[in-house]
Design a protein around this nucleic acid. Structure first.
Lengths: 219, 219
DNA sequence: GTCTATAATCTGATAGAC
DNA sequence: GTCTATCAGATTATAGAC
């Protein structure tokens, strides 16, 4: 008499939703794999279907379009970015800030940012460059991106850097180093080893003196 | 008796070659137009044929593949880059180098580099990022790129900066500013106005003291 | 050197059966 | 939710007529 005995009825709606979400996650994970193999623009629905054990057309019951998949990846990517930044914040900036601690925190932050970028060049391309012709992140995904930048601003503010121009210079410095490393010395460390020098230069520009990076064993 | 009267024979081989080169140049110019309209990856042979008054297939008698067209664009782009750098060099570094002159030259170079990047974002993408999936510049085109960087190194050396790491930091700084400007504030000046500050920071890092950028009316 | 014709393949996406 | 079948079109590239 109830849904229990009816084979076509769902067991419980939230279990169904969970299964559906699991499938979506699986598709997005496969998309990341493919994109790392064939480039960001090289993602093909057919390949994606093959990878996930489905016909390409069936993916459309999970995502309305290819762009919606890119959007899910964008969302995931910025969640990961925010997490990476937050980790540094909680690890290093909560205690009272001596000059050396501030400097250390900034060096750590720079290394983490750089590591995040070069560890996944395709993700870097999706998050930080505008390379997919007509892709525009959804409002929801964009909000996550904005929140991630707030996270970073908070981290800088905790160190005493609140000047918006200094923040912009900071992002330019870090993306510049990351970009050069990815583009011109993939797998090497030609720009990675300049991070501490760059951070010291930036610290001085912001009137925060530090003798030398105190942190060790960070890379 | 001679080729003069023979309609099927070429007038003069070099004239024929010139015409051919002219057609190639025309195709590449049209490719630049299209690429600025539809994005770097959005270049389609049909559009290109339409634009140049030719069937798409006929283009293959000038270029063996689409990649060969990208390669010609890459070549042109780095020629332009080298020219832009060389212009700064000849304008500002030949005279004996006082500290202020060195600083001025560096500020000028930074502004020119930045201007070159943001004035044509698609060109920037082709020259400085790896965004076309399987495109690798030919040896000839790559040689032009290398020469362009030599040009820049010479400019820096004339100012007294010969440390390879300083040169790498310099490129990271400039591409970082350019990249942020293109990606996050297209058409604006949010990062452009940080150039002088960044250069001053860099100068200090290299123990070249300058009170302030002397050059005016540069942007 | 440019054309027509066409190959052979891939693209994202939809309709409708089950 | 997954399938088959298929659309409508773009892709690079080649063959052969003129």
């Amino acid at each position: 008499m109830s849904a229990r005995a009816d084979t076509s009825a769902p067991a419980r709606p939230d279990r169904r939703a969970a299964r559906r979400q699991q499938s979506k996650d699986e598709i997005v994970a496969a998309a990341w794999d493919l994109v790392r193999e064939h480039g960001l623009a090289g993602l093909a629905m057919r390949d994606l279907g093959d990878r996930v054990g489905m016909r390409a057309q069936s993916i459309y019951s999970y995502f309305a379009s290819k762009h919606e998949i890119y959007d899910a990846m964008f969302h995931q990517g910025y969640l990961a970015f925010a997490a990476a930044i937050a980790e540094v914040k909680s690890a290093d900036t909560d205690r009272a800030g001596s000059v050396d601690q501030s400097a250390d925190a900034l060096h750590l932050m720079a290394h983490r940012f750089f590591e995040f970028c070069i560890s996944d060049p395709v993700r870097y391309q999706l998050l930080f460059q505008r390379t997919i012709p007509e892709f525009v992140p959804s409002d929801a995904s964009y909000a996550v991106a904005v929140e991630a930048y707030h996270e970073m601003n908070d981290g800088l503010a905790a160190i005493g850097i609140t000047d918006p121009q200094a923040v912009d210079l900071w992002t330019a410095l870090l993306t510049g180093l990351s970009d050069q490393q990815i583009s011109n010395d993939p797998g090497g460390d030609r720009w990675e080893r300049l991070i501490d020098r760059a951070v010291a230069m930036f610290l001085h520009d912001n009137n925060i003196n530090s003798s030398a990076p105190t942190q060790k064993g960070n890379r």
